[in-house]
């Protein structure tokens, strides 16, 4: 069975979330692997949120905020960018790999771009394979299933 990655997209309500909505309204096709988490601003994102997503089994995570200079809260997306870069370093140190995390910027009108990002991220993670921290969890689940 081919690997289907699970990707969490933390999307700002003022841009990327609206862009995802627009992508849907435009009937654009993009991989169903992305699960969206609505956030009030990407500035709300902290390192621990990103790590927890991986801990709970996400294969890839992205943070999508407003275009730089257009943040509803002025510079939340700039803070998010710095935190994403810092967390990439932590993920490299852990062995999960910083490539599994990315920051994107888009406006609410960029439905097409959202579909592209979802596709790009899905392809990237598919190439990287499953989150290495998940493999043992999966084995446990399989064992439980066999025992049952």
């Amino acid at each position: 069975m081919s690997f289907e990655p699970e990707i969490i997209g933390f999307c700002c309500q003022y841009c990327a979330f609206a862009a995802a909505d627009l992508a849907g309204a435009m009937r654009l096709q993009y991989p169903p692997n992305v699960k969206i988490v609505l956030i009030p601003c990407t500035g709300r994102i902290d390192i621990i949120h990103l790590l927890r997503a991986f801990e709970d089994g996400a294969d890839g995570v992205f943070v999508a905020g407003c275009l730089e200079g257009n943040c509803h809260f002025l510079e939340g997306n700039i803070w998010a960018k710095k935190r994403v870069i810092y967390t990439k370093g932590i993920l490299d140190e852990i062995g999960v790999g910083g490539d599994r995390l990315e920051m994107y910027n888009m406006s609410a009108a960029m439905g097409q771009r959202f579909a592209e990002v979802a596709t790009e991220m899905t392809e990237r993670i598919r190439a990287l394979g499953p989150n290495p921290a998940r493999k043992h969890k999966k084995i446990e689940a399989a064992e439980v299933a066999v025992e049952a």
Binding site: I47, I48, L51, R52, F54, E55, I90, E93, I94, G95, V96, P132, A133, R134, K135, H136, K137
Partner: peptide, 13 residues
């Protein structure tokens, strides 16, 4: 919290 999460992830790997 960040260290705890990092240690758990590394241990899971």
């Amino acid at each position: 919290g960040i260290l705890a999460s990092s240690l758990r992830l590394a241990a899971q790997i």
